[in-house]
Structures are given as C-alpha cells and as structure tokens.
Simulated assay, not measured.
Amino acid sequence: MRDSSQDLVNLIWSAADLLRGEFRASEYSSVLLPFAVLRRLECRNLLGGRSLVFQVHARTDPLDALRVMHDSAPAELADLLAGLDLHAIASRLAEAGLLTLVIARFAALDLSEQAVSDAEMGSVFDSLVRRSAETTAGFAGEHFTPPDVIALLAMMIVAPDAARLARRTAPIRVYDPVCGAGGSLMALWAAAGQLSPVELFGQDLNYASSALTSATLLMHGLDPGGIALGDTLSNDAHPEATFDYMVAAPPFGVEWKKVAGEVKKEAALGDAGRFGAGLPRITDSSLLFLQHMLAKMRPPEDGGSRLAVHFNSSPLFTGAAGSGESEIRRWILENDLLETVVALPERLLYNTRIPLTFGF
C-alpha cells in the first residue's frame, strides 16, 4: 500500500477517538466503515445530488439530512447503506451527542475520484476492514482470513491457467457462496483480473456481511450487482449459474438444522440436485457448501472450473466408513474432483488457533 493510502487509513481510523467511552473498541468499525462508504458516495455525486455536508453546515438536523440522502439515493445504494446499518448507528451517535462531530470529521476528507482513485480507495477500504477484524471477536465458526492467506489461495487457483486466460476474451466468472467481507472475491479479482475481465458473484446469509461485500466492490469501482443476501444452502441466489473460479471459507462446525428440510429435499433429487453425494452430520455444514460449489462447475467441454475451499481439518477426517462425510469424500475421489490438499499451520486466522486446510 502506498504511504498516502496508509495515511488515509490512519486518518479515517482516527475518528475512533471521538467514539471512546460511548463505543467499545470492537464497535468502532460499525461507525467508520459506513461513514467512509457514505463519504465516498457523496464525493462521487452518487446520492441523488444530496450533500450531507452542506445540509449539516446549513444547520439541518443531521438525522433528517441522512434520511433525505437515503430517500434520494438510487435503490441499490439505499439498500447498501441500510445493510451497513447506517441509520441505527447514526441514531446512537445522535443520542450520544457525537453525530455532528463524526460527520464533520468525515466532511474534511476529500474522497473524490480526482483525489483518491478506485484502486487506492479499494486498498484503503480493505485495510479498514482488516483493522476491524483485528479488533472484533469472531462469532462461533466465523473467522476472518488474513489477506496473505487469501492471496496464496487465489494464486494457486489461477496460476495454472495463466496462459489460457491471457488468450480469453469472455469475462471470467468468480463466485463465493459465503462471501463474508468479500476478501476472497477481491483476491481472485486481483489474480485473474490481470489476465481478463472479471465478473464477481457471491451470497451471504448475514445482512451486514452481504452489504459489506457490496461496499468493498463498490469502493474498488466494481459492480456489486452479483452479490446477494440469503442462505446459500436453502435458497441459492444464482440457480443454474456456473462459474470459472470459486472460493469459499465455510463457517467451521456450524450446524444446518435450520435448513434441514430444504437440504434433504434437494438431496433427494440425487445428481439432479446440489447434494447428491450425501449429507454430512447435522452439526457441520462445510461439506454441503463444497457440494454446492461442485454443482456449479462448468463441464470440461466448456472449459471446466477450478475451486478452492478452506476448512478446519474436521471435514477431511470426520465420519466412519459409510457415514455421510465418508460417502461425500468417496464420491469426490471417484469422480476425480480433488487435485490437492494443502495444510497450513495454526494461528493464521484471527481470533483462533485452528489450523487451516485448503482443498482444490
């Protein structure tokens, strides 16, 4: 990252000084990320011509100004700001007497395209998300994968196809069924986008996560239209779609009991569905996400697909012979779908000592 970009990251994060006492350190990003997005959109004149800075300086009530901006913004941007929980955060800031101060701090930032390119803004936003992960404890099974690990994964997927991709004219379609903050998608975009145009697709169950992925793409100057909200296992937002490259970090050891009815119904379809290889134990959905991705591979005659999934070691070894997990692994091997397994050491993930395993 250029020094100027790092200076901008530090400048934005310095607004956390206003929040101390009223917000916990783990909550700073819930304020800083949406306001950084808001200011970037405002500086790019994407909010229906409304200026939050102007209205606040004109002594308009800041909450009213936010509502006006939201109502005037294009629908997809209004949904994005809602997904980042901007109104709830703004209300909390207002109650603490901090909203005008926070707005004034961000109003001092010039985030126009002339001052900050899409590449620089994307790098800044990525750093803000990473700093957020470093100060936020993960929920059960959810862990932020460090950028260098994701970059390694992306390189290992794309590098073998470099010569072929350099000759390709059609866009490369990239997909993450549990896209989280969008880091894996952006790593594949960085790796494959040097060779050919890239279209990004993703889905996440968490409202804030899908909004954060959309924000990440937007801050990089990319189209977030392929990012969807919903449970990938029970409600695939990209049915019938196939992709060139896929990557996922399914939550570790998270049960699929809530969607058991939909999953079992699709499993009954056999090879016509996404879960024809079998069902794992109800306490771990990782191998369901893997099967979902395998179902979205292109046939070899259309160029095929490559994918990578990062697990803890449990999906590789859990289950005796004849169990759901064992049958899924057998099906993968018999259909020659596994290229390699890469084991990485402990302490690479934030907030956990769990070692990481890549499957390709």
Score class of each variant (00 low, 15 high):
residue 130 R to N: 15
residue 170 A to N: 10
residue 81 L to I: 04
residue 279 L to M: 07
residue 252 F to Q: 01
residue 178 V to L: 09
residue 6 Q to E: 10
residue 29 S to V: 00
residue 127 S to R: 10
residue 164 R to I: 13
residue 296 K to D: 03
residue 303 G to W: 05
residue 267 A to K: 06
residue 21 G to T: 08
residue 213 T to P: 01
residue 176 D to S: 08
residue 270 G to K: 06
residue 226 G to Q: 07
residue 236 D to W: 02
residue 96 A to N: 12
residue 91 S to V: 03
residue 221 G to I: 06
residue 310 H to L: 11
residue 73 A to F: 06
residue 57 H to W: 14
residue 283 T to K: 14
residue 181 A to E: 05
residue 256 W to Y: 15
residue 237 A to Q: 13
residue 104 A to P: 05
residue 106 F to G: 00
residue 60 T to V: 15
residue 210 S to I: 06
residue 275 F to L: 02
residue 162 A to N: 10
residue 186 M to P: 03
residue 230 G to C: 11
residue 208 A to E: 13
residue 44 R to C: 09
residue 294 L to A: 06
residue 126 D to Q: 14
residue 283 T to Y: 13
residue 120 E to T: 07
residue 63 L to W: 03
residue 336 D to R: 15
residue 106 F to P: 11
residue 304 G to I: 10
residue 258 K to Q: 14
residue 92 R to T: 05
residue 76 E to K: 03
residue 235 N to W: 11
residue 338 L to T: 10
residue 251 P to W: 14
residue 183 G to M: 07
residue 127 S to T: 07
residue 229 L to P: 04
residue 101 L to P: 04
residue 357 T to Q: 11
residue 213 T to M: 09
residue 270 G to Y: 11
residue 264 K to P: 05
residue 89 I to N: 02
residue 29 S to Q: 03
residue 26 S to F: 12
residue 182 G to W: 06
residue 167 R to L: 13
residue 143 H to V: 03
residue 277 A to L: 12
residue 358 F to P: 01
residue 211 A to F: 01
residue 132 S to G: 14
residue 23 F to L: 08
residue 137 A to S: 14
residue 137 A to G: 09
residue 325 E to V: 02
residue 251 P to M: 12
residue 62 P to L: 05
residue 304 G to M: 11
residue 172 I to F: 08
residue 192 A to F: 06
residue 10 N to T: 12
residue 309 V to E: 02
residue 116 V to Y: 01
